[in-house]
Design a protein around this nucleic acid. Structure first.
Lengths: 396, 396
DNA sequence: CTTACTTTTTCCACTCACAGGACAAAGGAG
DNA sequence: CTCCTTTGTCCTGTGAGTGGAAAAAGTAAG
């Protein structure tokens, strides 16, 4: 199928497209209530959007007491691809223009195999989604990678956990392969955009998203916009010192938060506890699986295992301590906890909350919700779709 | 004298006013090079500004190879008042519209005496400046206070070191007394704006300013704009935990940065060292003055006193540790160190740099200058003038 | 079914901001 | 004095946008 190539011609059209994306199908009259344009001007812009086929007519709206209005919606054939590359797995999803997930595949994979191998898999996953009839092609794609990105060019820079990716032109390469516009960002930033679009952060303008997965990262949203820092490495909180003279970390320092609590650290601690027979629950799991991961700790904790609960509490305390510092500094309106370890659930959350509320001043914590992410594994792919749609639905 | 009451009528005029503020007198032709407007449009807007008397003609410019252009400048009679209220002293300055300091008074004072007493002094200082012929009246005033501020209303909220100020309508009261528009902000934010306007941060868009005075605070600039946080308390880094189970702090916690290093903590440490006879230099100063302050420590350090140097180094290490965390999180393009203790100079700076460069990752520190502020005690008042001029030179 | 009232949509005349060309004014270089 | 460059002014054309009038398409009550 021929893909859409049109872009909004001006700020008004971009505004309308975003309203339709975020609010779904809408009548012309309702749109008029939201944009502060004269009826005539609005009609002209809507007609032009209809000509470009970015939006289509969608029957008549219910009456609001008089003549019924005509409904408008984004072209239902538009498709975005959301790709979330994690350290140990990849998520690929298809969305429509309203960013609803139509299909979603997850596949284990080691990011250290390098961009060529990973993108082969990503492309075949995308092809599978297309083959299942969910899309005939993609109008844009958003890609999340687990490391800092030079955002304008879409190129990873000095990513610690994916050394082979340094300088690889992700944006350009995938744009070529997929035949559509592509934007690339840090996975944590995309998670933040996802929660902002469809999750817990819908109404907040300044907030933090702390993602605890294989590593630990933080998405920063200022005034509704993701803040990426001077070199694209903002939010890299995994290497903040949490324990003076603590454990050695891969980065060369000691006591980094990530060395003391993260999916990887938790798995290692659990193995150690199992081998030392501190927990029969964990020891049994180790025996039957041959190895342990954060998921096992979560399961053990759910079963009431004291050692597992202690590990989680301890990690939550460390994390909470770091977050308390960030809260004092940044004074956010919301803190979202997400990532693979969300399975650890409320034990973790309670430990974090305790630390933050104790250590930060009342003015900053007084009205500060600290909550788990609402979208789970789809936050990243929704954020990815949001990224590319923001790009496409902006004036050319 | 009749004060200016005019405001720019549109965004173009605001743009022109800011160009004239930041670039000084300019020819019409030069302005045209900077604003991307047709010559006719530019002429119209400049003529309107001349009518309002916000700008005035200023002779002929040098020829650029053809007909000489007419010079334009901001009305030289415009005067802004910059007020920087610290914990133990107040700075008041008069500037012209280009934000050049024409007169500057500093006076010791205890902020805990409350807003009424403090503002009596401020008003009399302003009157003194006016009486000396520097101003016939003020077209606007910026006020900095040492605590969080609800910015839109200009009201301090829950300020720890100035309890009597909570909820006092600073903006409204001073606007009444001075008879001109007033804006209020945290003193650290104003320091950041000052360094941005006329100091070391002129070309940087994302940076931090750490002010070490009686307490410790941090100004955050994102995309060229001061970030104030959800409740106006962003940058309150004095109560980040720097030492686990460290010294008790006035806030009720233990180990806060401010409890271990700040003007107040430094003075206390110095007294202790003097009483224990660890340093004859400090002991002598204590004997002759009856008390010690950060200034004495600076002097002792300059004289080579080992104890004083140790105190500074230790404090710098603690501060550097906290800043390292902020650098990882925020990835700024510049870190400015300022405030009363700037006198401690390069010993302090070196200690901070060492910690930051050691603890943060290379991607964040690779091209990160950490420098002392350039403006010293005038940073605050220049920032205050900048605050009110930004407000006045924006479309009504 | 008719009538009165609403809401939505289209049409049209009018205003306004702005661009850009023509031309005059003012200066420099030879 | 002549030719060229830059600056400032004037004027007209264009396109964006507004707001009123009227037509179109409903609802609600008699």
């Amino acid at each position: 199928m021929r893909r859409m190539t049109a872009r909004p011609a001006n700020a008004h059209q971009a505004r309308l497209l975003r309203l339709l994306r975020d609010g779904g199908p809408n009548s012309r009259a309702q749109l008029g209530d939201q944009v502060d344009l004269s009826r005539s001007k609005l009609a002209v812009e809507v007609d032009r959007l209809l000509e470009t086929e970015l939006v289509v007519a969608d029957g008549l709206a219910a009456s609001r007491g008089g003549r019924r209005s005509h409904n408008i919606r984004l072209n239902p054939h538009l498709r975005f691809l959301g790709v979330d590359i994690g350290a140990t797995s990849v998520d690929v999803a298809v969305t429509n223009a309203e960013l609803e997930v139509l299909g979603h595949i997850n596949q284990p994979m080691d990011v250290r195999e390098g961009p060529v191998v990973v993108f082969e898999h990503v492309l075949s996953m995308a092809a599978k989604l297309r083959a299942s009839g969910l899309a005939e092609g993609f109008d844009g794609a958003g890609i999340g990678v687990p490391g800092p990105v030079r955002f304008p060019e879409g190129i990873p820079v000095a990513p610690p956990i994916m050394p082979g990716w340094d300088g690889f032109p992700v944006r350009e390469a995938l744009s070529q392969d997929l035949g559509c516009p592509v934007m690339v960002d840090n996975d944590v930033n995309l998670m933040a955009m996802g929660e902002q679009h469809a999750g817990v952060a819908r109404t907040v303008h300044d907030f933090l998203v702390v993602k605890i997965g294989t590593g630990i990262g933080c998405g920063i949203v200022v005034g509704g916009e993701v803040y990426r820092g001077t070199t694209g490495s903002a939010g890299d909180i995994g290497h903040i010192q949490a324990v003076p003279d603590g454990r050695p970390c891969a980065c060369g320092n000691r006591g980094c938060l990530e060395a003391h609590f993260s999916g990887a650290a938790l798995a290692r601690d659990a193995m150690e506890a199992a081998e030392q027979r501190l927990s029969t629950e964990l020891a049994n799991r180790l025996e039957s699986n041959g190895t342990l991961s954060a998921v096992d700790v979560a399961a053990a904790a759910a079963a009431g295992d004291a050692t597992a609960l202690d590990l989680i509490r301890e990690g939550g305390n460390r994390t909470g301590q770091v977050i308390a510092g960030l809260v004092s500094f940044f004074n956010p309106g919301l803190v979202v906890i997400g990532g693979g370890v969300t399975g650890l659930g409320h034990t973790l959350l309670a430990a974090i909350r305790t630390q933050v509320y104790r250590q930060s001043l009342p003015l900053a914590t007084g009205n500060l919700p600290i909550v788990l992410g609402e979208l789970g594994p789809t936050a990243g792919v929704i954020g990815a779709a949001r990224l590319i749609s923001d790009h496409l639905f902006s004036p050319a």
